[in-house]
Design a protein around this nucleic acid. Structure first.
Lengths: 371, 371
DNA sequence: CTGTTAGCGCTTTCAC
DNA sequence: GTGAAAGCGCTAACAG
C-alpha cells in the first residue's frame, strides 16, 4: 500500500493573502438590520414591528401592518434567532450524537436517518445540532449541552440495553426521544423497527419456498436488537412447526469474520443436516456468509439461500444481489420529531412508543432449497 | 416485495400518559442557575463572577476567585450559551448541509466526513448545525440561516463548477470553507483531494504491472471532480509514453449502469485492442464494470484489472476486493475547521487552498495483464 | 390601536 | 479589587 502523505500544494488561483484583502472575511453579525431599523424605517415603534412579525392580535391597523411589512422588505430584515431564543429561553436546537464509523465498517442506516431527521426537525421549526462524544463517557457531553442551554432536546440512536444516556436523561427529566429501545423497565419515548416482525417475514418467506433447515447468525445475548431479530426467527419456525435445531443458531460479533465462522461451523455437520438457508442479523455478516460459502463451492441463490438485514447501500449490487430487510427510515425520523414536538409543547402524547414494520426486499440471494 | 406497513403497537411498558405524569417532560431552561445565583451564593457581584469565569485579569483577589468557583460548583452553574452568544453577536454554530442519499445510492464519504468535521469543530469551541435544503434552490436556505444569525459560518461539500452557493457566499462576504473546488476564477477557501494525483497513482500502478491498454470510465465534462481524475489518467499515460486510444475514455453518469455500458462498449473492439485494465471515476461504476465483465466471462483480478475511486464502505468485502483510491477524510475535516477558525478570528490565512494527496489501496481486483 | 419599558443571561466599561 | 449599569435584539406586559 502506498503511503498516505498529506502534501500541501499551492494551487493556481491561490495566493497568500492577508486578511484585509481576503474575500471570505466576515462582517459576522455586524450591521444586520435589527427591529429598530425596521421601526425607524416604518415610522412606528419596535413593539408594533414585533406584533406584526409575530402575528399577534394586538389589533394593528391594516395600513400600519402593510407599512411594517414593506419596511421589513426594504431593509431586508430577519429576526435574530439568538435574541429570540434568549427571550424565550430555548435554543431551537435538537442534539443528535454522530457516531464514528470506523474505516471498513458500515454505517448501516444512520446517514439516511440523519437526513430525514433534519428535514422533519426543520419542518417543526427546529434545527439539528450534531455533536460527537468520546468513546468513553457520553453522558458528560449530554450534560454540558443541557446545562449550557445549547439544546432543547435530544434524539438518540444506537441504544443499548442499559444505555447510560437514557438513564441520565430520564433522571434529569430532560426531553428526548430515541430511535431504538433500551431497558424494558424504563419508561421513555422511543420509536423502533420491529426486528421480530422483520425476521419473521424473512424466515416465513424461506419456509414458503420449502426450506426446513434454516439457520441464523445472531449477535451476543446482550444485544437487544439481536435478540429481537432472533425472536422472529424462533417465532417463524414455531409457527411452521419446524423443531429448532440448536446448532442452527450461531452467535458472533459485528464483523465479516462472524459470517465466515458460521459457515465453517455448519460445514462440519453431516451433509444432510447442513442448513439450506441462512438468515443473518445484519448485512455485513451476510456478506461474510456468502463469501465463505462460495469459497466452499456453494452457489448462493441456488444451493444455499442467504438473507441479510438492514439493506445497507451496495448490497443490491452484489452478485447475487442480497435479499434483505429494510427499515422505514424516513417514517422513523418523522415520527420521532412529531413525538418530540408534542413533548416540547407539553402536550399529552397518545403513544409514547411506536414500532414500525420493516419490509423484506426480495432480490437474488434466495432460491428454493436444493433437492 | 412484501408491502410496507407502518403499524403502531402498544408496547408493554407503554401506557398512554398525560403530560403531568410523563417522564420526559421538560423543565426546559427553567430553574437553571444563572450568574446571579452564583453571585448571591458567593456574596459577590455578577461582574466578579463573570471575570472569574472568563479568566479576565481584572485583578480578582485569589480568595474571591476561590469563593466564586466554589459557589459555581455548589449551585452547578454553567453559563448560558444563548445569552453569551447574544452578547457576542455570534451563534457558535457552523452550518453544514446534509444531502439526501437516495435509496440505492452510496454516500461515498460524507458520513465519515461529517463526523470528523463535528469533532474538529468542537475542539475549536463550535458546534455543527446540519440542515437540509430542497433540491431546487439551496441559496435561500443559506440566506435565511445568515440573516437570522443562526450560524457563524458554513462548510460546503459536493460542490459544482459554478456552484450558486459559493457565488452567493462570496458575494455576501460570509465566512465559509469548502470541501471541493468550484469555478477556478473564484477566490475562496477550499480544501480538496488531488484527484489528478490519485488517478495518476492508480494508472502508474497498472503500468508498473505491465498494462498498456488501460481504459477509463469518466464523468461528463462538466464535472470538476471527474475532469481532475481524468487528467491524472492522461498524465500517467503520457508520462509512460503510452499513446491515448480515444475509445478508451468512456463517459457516463453516476450509476451502476454506466459501468455495464462501458464494458459492453469496449467488448465490441477487436480482442487484441480491448483494455486489459479499467480505472473508474468512482467505486459504484467499478462495481458495474466488474459485474458486467464477469457476466461476459472475464475474471477480474486476472484477465481484467479494475480500480475504483473513493473506497466506499463494503468495497473491501467484494470478491475480488476492490482496489481503490482513498481520501484522507479526517485530515480534510480538521484542515477545513482550522481554516475556518482563522477566518472567524479574522487572522491572516497563510494558504487559502489545500490539496491532500489520496492513497491507493491495493486489494485483489488488479493483476498483471493477461498474455 | 400603538408606544414605553422591563427583562431574558451575559459581558464589559467605567466608577468607586 | 469589585460593583453598578448599559446593552446585545427581541417579546410582551402595561400604559396611554
Amino acid at each position: 500500500m502506498i503511503e498516505r502523505r498529506s502534501l500541501r500544494v499551492d494551487f493556481d488561483p491561490c495566493v497568500r493573502l492577508m486578511y484585509d484583502d481576503c474575500a471570505c472575511i466576515p462582517l459576522a453579525g455586524t450591521e444586520m438590520p435589527t427591529i429598530k431599523d425596521v421601526a425607524r424605517e416604518a415610522g412606528v415603534s419596535i413593539a408594533t414591528v414585533s406584533y406584526v412579525l409575530n402575528n399577534k392580535d394586538a389589533g394593528i391597523r391594516d395600513s400600519t401592518r402593510q407599512q411594517v411589512l414593506e419596511a421589513v422588505r426594504r431593509v431586508g430584515y430577519a429576526p435574530n434567532v439568538t435574541a429570540r431564543n434568549l427571550k424565550a429561553s430555548r435554543s431551537g436546537l435538537i442534539g443528535y450524537a454522530w457516531h464514528e464509523v470506523p474505516l471498513g465498517q458500515v454505517n448501516s442506516v444512520l446517514d439516511r436517518f440523519t437526513y430525514y431527521l433534519a428535514q422533519a426537525a426543520e419542518a417543526s421549526g427546529y434545527h439539528m445540532l450534531t455533536f460527537t462524544h468520546p468513546p468513553g463517557d457520553p453522558v458528560e457531553v449530554y450534560s454540558d449541552l443541557i446545562r449550557t442551554g445549547r439544546v432543547d432536546a435530544f434524539v438518540l440512536s444506537d441504544t443499548n440495553t442499559d444505555d447510560p444516556r437514557i438513564r441520565f436523561l430520564i433522571d434529569q427529566d430532560f426531553p428526548f426521544v430515541s430511535f431504538g429501545r433500551a431497558n424494558p423497565n424504563w419508561d421513555f419515548c422511543w420509536v423502533d423497527t420491529d426486528g421480530t416482525a422483520g425476521m419473521r417475514q424473512a424466515v416465513d418467506y424461506l419456509i414458503e419456498l420449502g426450506h426446513r433447515r434454516i439457520a441464523m447468525v445472531a449477535w451476543p445475548e446482550n444485544s437487544l436488537v439481536g435478540e429481537n431479530r432472533l425472536a422472529g426467527y424462533l417465532d417463524a419456525l414455531e409457527n411452521a412447526g419446524i423443531p429448532l435445531h440448536p446448532a442452527y443458531i450461531f452467535r458472533g460479533e459485528y464483523d465479516i469474520q462472524t459470517g465466515h465462522d458460521a459457515v465453517i461451523y455448519w460445514s462440519q455437520l453431516p451433509p444432510d443436516e447442513r442448513p439450506t438457508a441462512i438468515v443473518t442479523v445484519t448485512d455485513l455478516i451476510a456478506i461474510g456468509v456468502i463469501n465463505e460459502a462460495e469459497r466452499q463451492g456453494l452457489v448462493v441463490g441456488d444451493t444455499l439461500s442467504v438473507i441479510g438485514y438492514d439493506d445497507v447501500p451496495l448490497t443490491q449490487y452484489l452478485r447475487p444481489a442480497l435479499t434483505t430487510v429494510q427499515q422505514p427510515i424516513p417514517e422513523i425520523g418523522r415520527q420521532l420529531i412529531q413525538m418530540l414536538e408534542m413533548i416540547l409543547a407539553r402536550e399529552p402524547l397518545a403513544q409514547r412508543n411506536v414500532l414500525f414494520a420493516p419490509s423484506l426486499i426480495i432480490r437474488d440471494s434466495v432460491g428454493p432449497p436444493p433437492r
